[in-house]
Design a protein around this nucleic acid. Structure first.
Lengths: 207, 207
DNA sequence: ATGTTTACCATACAAATGTATGGTATTATA
DNA sequence: TATAATACCATACATTTGTATGGTAAACAT
């Protein structure tokens, strides 16, 4: 089923995967021909036929951009993790990703959202654990009750957000802990974004 | 920026989202016209222009299938939840979805995977809680150590899977619990699928 | 030596695709 | 009441797109 691809076929397949990943749109034959400098689409067609025969793609006849990737790996798209969040330590957001997670393709991330990997168990009151990936959207205004990722005195916290008249309160999920009360003008406090979701890959737990 | 869509425009937008979700391919104007019974593509084009003007999509001129979804809400694609899983009760997989979750578009779901909503706290040893959505892939052969969703004596369990010579063992995450040992030919045991991920929406926790 | 696979080329063609223009009727909105 | 926006129609057109056919040349296997 999964025969070996020639080096050119592999390059074309990679190009297709890349396009699907970044444009979210499979290329046309002309796109491929253009990229590789082919003077006509027939060449591309023949390559695609070969790649399909080897089982790496499925072509939907007559459909424009009807190239489907069939191998399992492509359903898990590597996404960059921009930093780690752990209470007690500064939230470190690196310019480059520190890691990539194989996220199952549920859909696309909200634009401009980023992922943070949770380290330590200080967030367990919110049922968030080491290795979990939190999806943070920096463009949402936090409304009361939402979970936010914030920096407080160089420590990162993920807690529920409540805006009071002159203060901001951060509530833990655990009612035994008193809420953190912060003056509205306190300089060392900054909201990073609203936590819109938590994702945990079960593969990580294997072994 | 985000003006209100008319009901027809919303239907068309939803159709586009749906197509992107299931085919992984935005529709052509003809596709849309066909689905809604329009006799020509010009009508669709005018609707798309209106939707674009209101900021929900971006059109790539002259590009086939060049519809990009831009609006924030669309990144949360409603996904059907096929059933509930809770220890002690039978796993009920309904023909119709019992609920829809707004899943952030991280990627696409593995083909044929389905979602189950977790009820009860019997899975808390696996750090899975009420309201969490587990992503189950029924097409993966469970290898040792993977989390599986299974039916045992009409009760649904989510546990780690280990295949022994003549038995199957289901381990809890909590070492204090003894593993469940099942004879390989025991009739009332069936593996539903491998849990490939857990997603928890933080919105659900608000209020 | 002969056939097969691979890797291109050129040309042609029907169908699909996005776009443009102009028209009609209904419903909001000012 | 006048004006805009909405929701369709029809027709037309240039490209784009996938496909088909046939040819050349090199690498490789039998």
């Amino acid at each position: 089923m999964a025969k070996e691809l020639t080096s050119i076929q592999l390059k074309i397949l990679n190009f297709i995967v890349e396009r699907v990943k970044v444009d979210n749109l499979p290329p046309t034959l002309a796109d491929i021909a253009n990229f590789f400098g082919y003077k006509n689409r027939a060449t591309v067609q023949q390559h695609l036929s070969a790649i399909e025969k080897k089982g790496y793609i499925k072509r939907n006849a007559k459909l424009s951009r009807g190239i489907e990737l069939t191998f399992e790996d492509k359903f898990f798209v590597p996404k960059p993790v921009l930093g780690e969040v752990a209470a007690g330590n500064p939230l470190t957001i690196y310019p480059d990703s520190i890691d990539t997670v194989q996220l199952p393709t549920i859909a696309k991330m909200p634009r401009d959202s980023f992922l943070l990997k949770v380290k330590g168990d200080s967030l367990k009151d919110a049922y968030i654990f080491t290795g979990d990936i939190i999806i943070v959207n920096p463009n949402i205004d936090p409304s009361n009750g939402k979970f936010v990722a914030a920096i407080l005195d160089d420590a990162a916290v993920v807690k529920r957000f409540f805006r009071k008249s002159n203060t901001i309160e951060l509530h833990s999920e655990n009612p035994e802990y008193n809420p953190i009360v912060i003056d509205k003008n306190y300089p060392n406090f900054k909201i990073v974004g609203v936590v819109v979701g938590v994702y945990r890959s079960m593969d990580k737990m294997v072994g």
